[in-house]
């Protein structure tokens, strides 16, 4: 496997980014869902949001790298898809980028709305760039709904990928597996 992407398949960097972010985002979704219902006296009441914020910001960093990497690499072809499939596939792939940016930036704004920084695993602080009254509420709505839409897209994307992995394998190659 190549480091860079080719016309036939994704390279190593893209694969590591793709699978690590898929794993991290799924865990973040589950963690976020679970942590907002925690009892005040739960031992995880503080550590769960700390972990969620820290991992979330690392995923935001990974997303920046991923977008840059996408822009300087060729795109593997999707010639085996029907025109309808291709349109849907491209819409889903392109939809992920703005949604993930909205998801992670809004999460950052919830925690930094009053000027507080976010402590990432105790390694470093990410400072607030905007402090505005009520920002946490608007950001909270965006965060919640973009998370649902991202997960819905991920389900569609996974179902389509599995279909092409096991149902109609046209040329026996696997772009991302």
């Amino acid at each position: 496997m190549m480091i860079k992407d080719s016309r036939d398949q994704y390279g190593a960097v893209s694969r590591v980014l793709h699978w690590s972010m898929a794993l991290a985002l799924s865990l973040l979704f589950a963690l976020g869902w679970w942590m907002v219902g925690l009892d005040y006296y739960s031992p995880y009441y503080k550590s769960a949001p700390d972990l969620h914020r820290s991992v979330g910001l690392l995923v935001l960093l990974a997303l920046g790298v991923r977008i840059a990497w996408r822009l300087i690499n060729v795109k593997p072809n999707d010639d085996d898809l029907s025109p309808v499939e291709r349109t849907a596939s491209r819409a889903v792939h392109l939809g992920f980028y703005p949604l993930l940016i909205a998801l992670m930036v809004s999460g950052y704004f919830i925690s930094t709305a009053d000027g507080r920084a976010i402590d990432v695993f105790g390694w470093f602080n990410v400072p607030a760039v905007v402090a505005a009254p009520g920002l946490e509420d608007a950001a909270g709505l965006v965060h919640e709904w973009s998370a649902y839409v991202v997960m819905a897209l991920a389900v569609v994307h996974s179902a389509a990928a599995l279909k092409h992995r096991y149902w109609n394998v046209t040329n026996g190659r696997h772009r991302m597996w």
């Binding site: 919830i110 009053d114 507080r116 920002l135 946490e136 909270g140």
Partner: peptide, 11 residues
């Protein structure tokens, strides 16, 4: 309460 995240929860 001088903490936006907590205020969001309180609201």
């Amino acid at each position: 309460s001088n903490h936006a995240e907590r205020d969001k929860h309180l609201r």
